[in-house]
Design a binder for these strands. Structure first.
Lengths: 237, 237
DNA sequence: TTATCGGTGTGACGAATATCACACTTTTAT
DNA sequence: ATAAAAGTGTGATATTCGTCACACCGATAA
């Protein structure tokens, strides 16, 4: 059997796993504003996004929402239901852009994962990274107030969706409303608005047609005592 | 090396995994105040706690600490380094009670996990639950202010370390300083102190010799709009 | 015993953040 | 094109929370 280190070279981007998911026997159209699944629902399926965009959110009875990830083409959702005793979705998948997802049966995937060690390896690697990302987010979101939460979110957005521009700035290629950012940070849209405008005035970032461009990422990093953890980890998604 | 097996049976889940860890070829004494490992250190080993207690913390350059778990006998630490490209510990393991840990080589465990599907299954199950716990903590810690963070922490402590008493109360069998709780919640010891005293005055809880007894768990739950997620998930550790 | 130490309890105050209200701007739908 | 809807910007005010200061409490070691 191949050693982990060799496999690591072979599959840096989880190709086997996605290949398997792509072979799904059917797909499903998703419509903006609808939900692919909602928290609490029994979970029998996972999805690979073929097109469109999803927000993975946790809702509160009082109407508040907390956003964990924004997922688009090539990403896997519903993953945390695998190998659980009582499979229910923990999060809600809200469609924010029309598209299509490949559907795969949870049971089938579990079976395949246990049969195919190199697939297992990919999945574990993916899940480990996922967990590491979630855990590092904690420090930033909780330990440096709401400003820290926003700055951290912007940095992670840069790493996840950023396009480097000629002048060294980074365009976050995702239309984000103030409220969206607030949902990532656990704050209010008004607070986000004020903080963003303060950053604009300092020349740290600018906003055009709903998309943010970061001009001075280092400023944001220094404000939250960023330790430059690997980009693999310091991401939204 | 012989480990007292009855200790490992405290938690009936994940027996295969623990059995494997138990076969570790050596163990290490841990001394209160020292660190089993520190974040950033290259990670080549995992540990199974035989005795003693550890705090898994994330530190900040400015001296703040965030506590994720308190681990004792039968628990596995250092797990998130498995299957990562650049294996470094993300958290620091601070010893808060003398003891001993079984040491297992990361490479060896990775190999075993890929060779043995039923071991794989246990590990994935464990990691999934771990991730689900971390994720659900987010909502509580971020969405309901510091009071929500404390209440959530107390509820999770009850599920993790609670001993039901005859009168229906729950004793959290773990000596906790105000500062410890503050580190779990991302707040200050003064704030924790005020909130705890407010809860004492309302008869929600009482404290004797450093240990908290919850008299009215439902009050705490209702305050943070708890959805009674499975106890498997709603835990500190 | 007393001195020391780590922890608790609490007031005063200021900073950070939420809330409310409303005007203004941009986007979307008809 | 125009109206309606959605999103942004901002002041005023309330609330939450952190910070500082210091008294107190209880264990323990000299």
């Amino acid at each position: 059997m191949a050693l982990p280190s060799e496999q690591l070279q072979l599959n840096p981007r989880f190709n086997q796993l996605k290949e398997l998911l792509r072979s799904a026997n059917y797909s499903k159209k998703i419509k903006k504003g609808s939900f692919l699944f909602q928290e609490g629902m029994p979970a029998n399926e996972l999805y690979l996004i073929c097109s469109g965009k999803l927000q993975m959110i946790k809702t509160c009875p009082d109407g508040k929402e907390m956003c964990f990830r924004i997922c688009s083409v090539g990403e896997i959702v519903g993953e945390l239901t695998l190998f659980t005793n009582d499979p229910k979705y923990l999060l809600t998948a809200k469609v924010i852009e029309d598209g299509e997802v490949a559907v795969i049966e949870k049971d089938y995937l579990e079976e395949q994962l246990l049969l195919n060690p190199s697939l297992t390896f990919e999945y574990m690697q993916w899940l480990s990274n996922h967990t590491r990302r979630t855990q590092t987010k904690f420090r930033d979101l909780i330990l440096h107030g709401k400003k820290g939460a926003l700055y951290s979110t912007l940095i992670r957005m840069s790493n996840s969706y950023g396009i480097p521009l000629k002048d060294g700035s980074i365009l976050i290629d995702l239309p984000l409303k103030n409220q969206d950012l607030a949902n990532f940070c656990g704050t209010t849209r008004e607070s986000v608005n004020r903080m963003l405008n303060a950053l604009k005035n300092k020349g740290i970032l600018s906003i055009k047609r709903g998309k943010i461009t970061i001009h001075d990422l280092d400023y944001l990093k220094s404000e939250i005592q960023c330790e430059n953890c690997p980009v693999e980890i310091c991401r939204i998604e």
